[in-house]
Simulated scan of single mutants.
Amino acid sequence: MKIFDIHSDLFTDVAWRRSQGETNVFDRIHYPQLKKGGVDSIICVLWVEPAFREDPIARFQKLLRHTLDDLRTSKHANVCLTVDDMKNEIFSNKINLFLGIEGMTFLEAWGKDSLDANIESAFEVLHENNVRHTIFVWNEWNALASGTGSEDEPTSRGLTSFGELAVQKANELNWILDASHLDEASFWDMYNATDQPMIASHSNAYALCPHERNLKDEQIKAIASRGGLIGLNAFHGFVDKENPTLERFVDHAAYMADLVGSEHIAFGFDFIDYLSTYDLGGPIKGSTLGLENVAKIPDLLDCMKARGFSTNEIEDISFNNAYRFMESHFKN
């Protein structure tokens, strides 16, 4: 069964390894593991780690350069702009990649005369480099929006006027707007600032795990009401605070399916096992028992079947829902 993972940080590993002199990181390190898990397609993000928050623009530029250099020489990475670019053969030796951003604080130092100009320039440059997705914040607040997990209180919560401009620019370029990491105020501001479907690429149900990174029922319903998509997150802290297990992960899938229908659910695993040896500047270690890495995905599918999900529902959640969302979005 094919898997479409709508949130991956593997570019972080690519950048660290290339900074240490390694090459062909995607092909050597990630491609074999992705194949073991049945992964066919991914949204991969460029994410400035907490360790580099003092100079996010410098780190972002290195991330982008290392990533593009690695993809340029890859035999297995197929960078896509629409579903028409995807290799859909079951036994293809390619992994379809859509490029995204996780946190846009670097915009503040983009180098133009004003933040408005920075937004205009950055979106255009990133678009030229095949980026088609954005999350405005990561455990922070910035000039665009307020997010969850910030070390200090934002000056105000919600989208700023610059955030509204960024939404307009994303809509103009037909990027995917991703609500994961937004706090509630910013979530609703973004929802009201766009008429496009939104995704929450790696968020679970707050009702089952009351963490601020998870979605409350009204947020889940709002995303579904416009034909949006929610990617279930395997990060242990968002699965269960006390006992994060494979079974509990499936609880989130069942809860959302009962609430809005399985057609609005996907996988956004957010696996971090390959980042455990790096000093990223924050406590992101840990795992969900039974779903520690991409190779455990077949076990997840077996568990979902045992819990009563039909073959069609599992296929939709695993791949078809994300594929249909991308197909519809990039035709708008």
Rank of each mutant, 00 (worst) to 15 (best):
M1N: 11
M1C: 06
I3D: 00
I3S: 05
H7I: 03
L10G: 08
L10V: 15
T12S: 13
T12V: 14
D13W: 13
V14S: 04
V14Y: 07
V14R: 08
S19T: 05
Q20A: 15
G21Q: 12
G21F: 13
E22C: 05
E22F: 15
Y31C: 07
K35F: 12
K36N: 08
G38M: 07
I42D: 03
I42K: 00
I43R: 07
C44W: 04
V48C: 03
P50T: 01
F52K: 09
R53P: 05
I57R: 08
Q61W: 04
L63S: 02
L64W: 12
R65W: 09
H66A: 12
L68M: 09
D69I: 00
R72E: 14
H76N: 14
C80G: 09
C80A: 11
E89G: 15
E89P: 05
I90R: 07
I90T: 07
F91Q: 13
K94H: 06
K94M: 13
K94V: 04
I101F: 10
T105W: 04
T105C: 05
F106R: 01
L107I: 15
W110V: 01
G111P: 02
K112L: 07
S114H: 13
L126M: 01
H127N: 14
H133K: 08
I135W: 01
F136E: 06
W141G: 02
N142G: 04
A143M: 07
L144K: 02
S150L: 08
S161N: 11
K169E: 02
A170F: 01
E172Q: 15
L173W: 00
N174V: 04
I176L: 08
S180K: 10
S180G: 07
L182Y: 11
L182C: 13
L182V: 11
D183G: 01
D183P: 01
S186I: 00
F187Y: 03
D189T: 11
N192Q: 11
H202Q: 05
N204W: 03
A207M: 10
L208F: 06
E212D: 15
D217N: 14
A222Y: 03
I223P: 09
A224E: 07
A224P: 11
L232Y: 00
A234K: 08
G237Q: 10
V239R: 14
K241R: 09
T245L: 04
T245M: 00
T245K: 06
T245C: 06
E247I: 05
E247Y: 02
R248I: 04
V250P: 06
V260N: 07
S262E: 14
H264K: 09
F269T: 13
T277M: 10
T277F: 10
Y278E: 12
D279W: 10
L280R: 10
L280E: 04
I284V: 12
G286N: 08
T288F: 00
E292R: 14
N293M: 10
P298F: 06
L300D: 04
L300G: 02
C303I: 09
F309R: 12
E313I: 13
Y323H: 14
Y323L: 12
Y323F: 15
Y323T: 11
M326Q: 01
M326W: 11
F330I: 03
K331A: 12
